[in-house]
Amino acid sequence: FSITQFVRNLGLEHLMDIFEREQITLRVLVEMGHKELKEIGINAYGHREKLIKGVERLI
């Protein structure tokens, strides 16, 4: 299971460039909250919320 699959499953594949540029893996994403996601350029609250909720389902 990769970050690419995870992001695609959430319908947020347009954010993949950010994850690749910042070298974010699923392991790193698990540790990130709204503040960190915003810092790397994910400005939409809804997108950040989707990512965080998606990660919570993985754990």
Rank of each mutant, 00 (worst) to 15 (best):
Y45M: 09
L12M: 08
E22F: 09
F1G: 09
L37C: 02
L26C: 09
F6P: 00
Q23D: 08
L10H: 02
V28L: 12
L58F: 12
I24F: 04
R8E: 07
L51V: 09
G46A: 15
K38H: 08
G11E: 06
I40P: 00
I18R: 04
K50C: 11
M32V: 03
S2I: 08
F1L: 13
G11R: 07
V7G: 00
M16E: 08
E31S: 15
N9M: 14
G41L: 04
I40H: 04
L29Y: 03
R48N: 02
E49L: 13
R57L: 12
I40K: 05
R48I: 07
Q5L: 10
G33T: 07
I3C: 04
N9I: 13
H34T: 02
L26D: 01
V55P: 01
I42S: 01
V30Q: 12
E36H: 05
H14C: 14
E39H: 10
L12G: 02
L12N: 01
G41W: 05
G46S: 15
I59M: 14
H14M: 13
L37T: 01
G46P: 11
G11T: 03
E39F: 08
E13F: 11
I42E: 01
G54I: 05
K53F: 06
E49D: 10
R27A: 12
K50G: 05
L37N: 02
S2K: 07
K38W: 07
R21Q: 08
H14Q: 13
V30G: 10
K38F: 09
I3D: 01
L26W: 14
I40M: 08
E22Q: 12
R8Y: 14
L10S: 02
I18Y: 06
T25I: 04
N43T: 14
R27I: 10
V30F: 13
F19S: 02
V55Q: 02
L51H: 05
T4P: 07
V30A: 14
I3Q: 01
V7N: 00
E36S: 05
K50L: 12
L37R: 03
V28A: 13
E13Q: 11
T4D: 11
E22N: 15
N9K: 12
H14I: 12
K50P: 01
K53V: 08
L15E: 00
V55H: 03
R8V: 10
E36L: 04
G33F: 03
I52C: 05
L51Q: 01
E31D: 14
K53Y: 07
E56W: 08
V30S: 14
